[in-house]
Simulated scan of single mutants.
Amino acid sequence: MSVHSPMPRSAWIFPALAVLLFMAVGATDYAFTLSLGGLVFATVLLVILFGTVFAAVHHAEVIAERVGEPYGTLVLTLSVTIIEVALITTIMLGAKPAPQLARDTVFAVVMIVCNGLVGLCIFIGGLRYREQGFQLSGANVYLSVLFALATITLIMPNYTTTTPGPAYSAVQLGFVDVVTLALYGVFLYTQTVLHKDYFVHERTDGEGAGAHLSGRIFWLSVALLLVSLLAVVLLAKKFSLVVDAVGAKIGAPPAFAGLLVAVLILLPEGVAAVSAARKNDLQKSINLALGSSLATIGLTIPAVGVATYAFDKELELGLNEQGIVLLALTFFLSMLTFGTGRTNVLFGLVHLVVFAVYVFMVFVP
């Protein structure tokens, strides 16, 4: 979506509809049930929620174009993380216990991003340009932090002795929250101050120049981004009721809710990443994809950890054996894919196959 064109109507209509829907639900004290009226409400809710998420990402892209890389990608990832934390904590703090939701969502984000999104970007770029380049040093920074954070949060809980896995004790969870925030903070300092050049790849096609936006458009996007994020947070409770009811009705596996939340929050960012790959800007695709994975673990886990501790809820983080195998395979494959600074269509296809295996195993474990 180009920021040079006039602001699309959907960029302000959906946030406005989301606020109006929340006000209408609050005024009528509507309670969701699986009836014909409930299905109509669920459809309207999902359409407005998806549209509002897309609007939020559009405004984040407008701001990103103005501030430039790598700050622009940071705006996008932080916006998506706020939405993710709101959805996860709302569902987890609901009446129905969901101690695995944070783990399932974080794992789904890692698998969608590192296999589905990365694979699709590399595959499309490989078909169109044969090979695409990126900053090897930046990819190594992303992967080293991602591997450490994912291992600490998704694997280590299975092997602690203070409490039986797959959960950390309160003290252990507090320590993990601190170290993950510290590591992510140092990564941000590296990305935005120390080594900005690691995350910007020189283009050879003359594209990628900074956008020239009027101050009015910029500040309007800032305001609408805040409204969009607030609207998603306000509707998160009703979304959680729809997820619980539909999941119970169709007999969906426990990991389905986490996968659905991950798809909702990553779809707009995924569209932006694929669009960048089509324009031969694989570096931006990598920044969006791997950056969102890091933000998910580095910010979502500490936020959810604090929420579960404050409201005395259970939080299970450790993956089962099947998930650990898929995560380890993703780590190994990512090292090979990002190990040379050049990609081709075969690397993308292999990632897509691993992602297909993950989705299949969610429904047929």
Rank of each mutant, 00 (worst) to 15 (best):
V3D: 11
P8A: 03
W12Q: 03
A18E: 00
A24M: 01
V25D: 14
V25H: 01
T28K: 09
T33Q: 10
F41P: 05
F50K: 09
T52C: 01
H58I: 06
E65R: 15
L74V: 12
L78D: 05
I82G: 00
A86K: 10
M92H: 01
P99M: 08
L101R: 02
A102T: 06
D104S: 11
T105C: 11
T105Q: 14
T105M: 12
V113F: 01
L117W: 12
V118Y: 07
G125M: 04
Q135K: 12
L136T: 05
A139R: 15
L143C: 09
S144F: 10
L146C: 03
A148F: 09
I152E: 04
Y159F: 15
T162G: 04
T163A: 08
A167Y: 01
V178D: 04
L181W: 09
V186R: 06
F187Q: 01
Q191F: 01
T192W: 01
Y198H: 11
V200G: 14
H201E: 13
E202Q: 12
G206M: 04
E207T: 12
G208P: 02
G208L: 03
A209R: 11
G215N: 15
G215M: 14
G215D: 13
I217R: 02
S221P: 06
L224I: 02
L226Y: 04
S228D: 00
L230D: 00
A231F: 06
K237T: 07
S240P: 10
V242P: 14
D244A: 14
A245W: 07
A257S: 11
G258A: 08
V261I: 15
L266Y: 02
P268G: 07
K279N: 09
L282V: 08
G291W: 15
A295Q: 02
P302A: 07
V306W: 03
A307N: 00
A307R: 00
F311Y: 13
F311R: 07
L326Q: 13
L329N: 05
T330H: 13
L333H: 02
L333G: 06
L333Y: 05
V345S: 08
G348E: 11
V354K: 02
A356S: 13
V357R: 00
Y358R: 10
V359F: 04
V359M: 02
V362L: 13
